[in-house]
Amino acid sequence: MKPASVEYHKATSIADAVDVLSSTEDEDAKVLAGGQSLVPMLSMRLARPSVLVDINGLTDLDYIRRDGDWLSIGALTRSRAVEKSAAVRDAAPLLSEAMGFVGHATIRNRGTIGGSVAHADPAAEAPAVLCALDAELVITGPAGARTVGANDFFHGFLTTAVGPDEMLTEIRVPVLPAGTGCAVEELARRHGDFAMVAVFAAVTVGDDGRCTDARLALAGTNPTPVRAREAEAVLVGSGLTAETIAQAAQAAAGVTNSANDIHAPAEYRRDMASVLTRRALRRAASDANVVV
């Protein structure tokens, strides 16, 4: 388990990184951020880039900022920093909670939120929670920056909207409105493992006690993170009752589309999507001060 030969380029700026990414012949340059997934893949020789573009020197991509109704997070921000950030907890508590499920502390020390999102493992927490939050992802390439909604960003297993000559540079998360309750429910074989199934729920409750907005995203159940739109529709406009939550949970199971693997058959994941959705919604409702 030793990496194959590879060239190394330490990027001095975003423009410099993009320049190298767009100049390799086979479009096989790889951005090296925290390296928590990429370096093991190099060691197993499952990834064979000709050049690594190390962006760890781009400290201008390491920030968490609140701009009015938006929270902006630089792609190089370490997962640990996102997890511990008061600004994140204030603006998007669902994101704080989700980051606590990402690997283990030492992995979060080094791993970056941008790296996790760009790697696009369908069982990872960061991609799914950003879908739940309707985040926007800023991609920078030779033609400059463009923004893609999180729900359009993930194209398939380990594939995203980021082109071979582009890199993810910023994550923008709309601040959750007041009256929103959040919860993450994850079923993993062990604490810190990738999810068998994880559900990220945010429900906003109006003054009349009705649900005005609901976001439900699932990880581990599909080739990409997925929103359970039908389940959300069940809730919006209704009260958060045991019945509506059960209906939503059942609807959530309908979006799953996974293959059998060593940890679980597909139908198990489908069933768990329902169980965890119910649990997540109950906790989220309680977080929004609704007694179910």
């Binding site: 074989r189 062990r190 604490h191 810190g192 493992d193 990738f194 060593i262």
Partner: peptide, 28 residues
């Protein structure tokens, strides 16, 4: 509860990393 060396129907082993063959951690 956790550990199993799994073979596919094709005779390929599917558990060759610590991500697939699960040994207990302190929280287990």
């Amino acid at each position: 509860l956790l550990e199993e060396l799994v073979y596919g129907e094709d005779g390929q082993i599917q558990t060759t990393t610590f991500m697939d063959y699960l040994v207990p951690t302190a929280t287990d």
